[in-house]
Structure formats: C-alpha cells, structure tokens
Amino acid sequence: MANIKSAKKRILVNRTKAERNKAIKSGVKTAIKKVEAAVTAKDKDAAIAALLNATSVIDKATTKGVYHKNNAARKVSRLAKLVNNI
C-alpha cells in the first residue's frame, strides 16, 4: 500500500475509473451481442434497430475515452456489414 497521500488518491481514482470503463465495455458487448442475435435469427427489422442502438453505445464509449476512434469505427463497420448481409 502506498504511503504518500497523492499515491493513495491515485489508487482510489484509478479503481473508480476502471470500474466505470468496465461497465461501459460490458454495455458495448451486450449491444453487439443483441445485433448478432438478431442477425442469426434473420430478423432484419430487429437487427437494424439493434444496430442503431449499438452504434450509439459504441460512439458514447468512444467519446468517454474507453475505445479508440479507429477501434470503434471497426466495430460499427463489422456490425453494419453483418446487418447488410441478411
């Protein structure tokens, strides 16, 4: 355990940020799974709706600094490609 006050604070802040990032990443994964489930069910309308939601969730995660913009673009592109191939 750290002895210096600022180091103790950094530990607490890093823990808080890690929990926040973990929650955001979990939400992104859930949104992606919903799109993939709709695609495997061949439900075009549900897939499009899930894609719009997933895109929004991924973009929000990117603006919060959880994902790099290229990583987010790649995820959205792959999901759009899946939906378009139904």
Rank of each mutant, 00 (worst) to 15 (best):
residue 24 I to Q: 06
residue 26 S to M: 12
residue 27 G to R: 07
residue 27 G to F: 03
residue 27 G to E: 07
residue 27 G to A: 02
residue 27 G to L: 02
residue 28 V to Y: 04
residue 28 V to K: 06
residue 29 K to I: 06
residue 30 T to R: 08
residue 30 T to S: 07
residue 30 T to W: 03
residue 31 A to P: 09
residue 31 A to W: 03
residue 32 I to S: 04
residue 32 I to Q: 06
residue 32 I to T: 01
residue 32 I to D: 02
residue 34 K to A: 05
residue 34 K to L: 02
residue 34 K to M: 03
residue 35 V to P: 01
residue 37 A to E: 06
residue 37 A to G: 06
residue 37 A to M: 03
residue 38 A to I: 00
residue 38 A to Q: 01
residue 39 V to W: 00
residue 39 V to T: 00
residue 39 V to Y: 00
residue 39 V to D: 00
residue 40 T to I: 07
residue 40 T to C: 05
residue 40 T to N: 07
residue 40 T to D: 06
residue 44 K to D: 11
residue 46 A to T: 08
residue 46 A to D: 06
residue 46 A to Q: 10
residue 48 I to E: 12
residue 49 A to Y: 12
residue 49 A to K: 12
residue 49 A to S: 12
residue 49 A to H: 13
residue 49 A to F: 07
residue 51 L to R: 02
residue 52 L to K: 13
residue 52 L to H: 09
residue 52 L to R: 10
residue 52 L to D: 08
residue 52 L to A: 10
residue 54 A to Q: 04
residue 54 A to P: 01
residue 55 T to N: 14
residue 55 T to K: 15
residue 56 S to I: 03
residue 57 V to S: 11
residue 57 V to C: 09
residue 58 I to V: 06
residue 58 I to D: 00
residue 58 I to N: 00
residue 58 I to F: 11
residue 59 D to A: 03
residue 59 D to H: 01
residue 59 D to L: 11
residue 59 D to G: 00
residue 59 D to I: 04
residue 60 K to C: 11
residue 61 A to Q: 14
residue 62 T to I: 08
residue 62 T to W: 13
residue 62 T to K: 15
residue 64 K to W: 07
residue 64 K to F: 09
residue 65 G to Y: 03
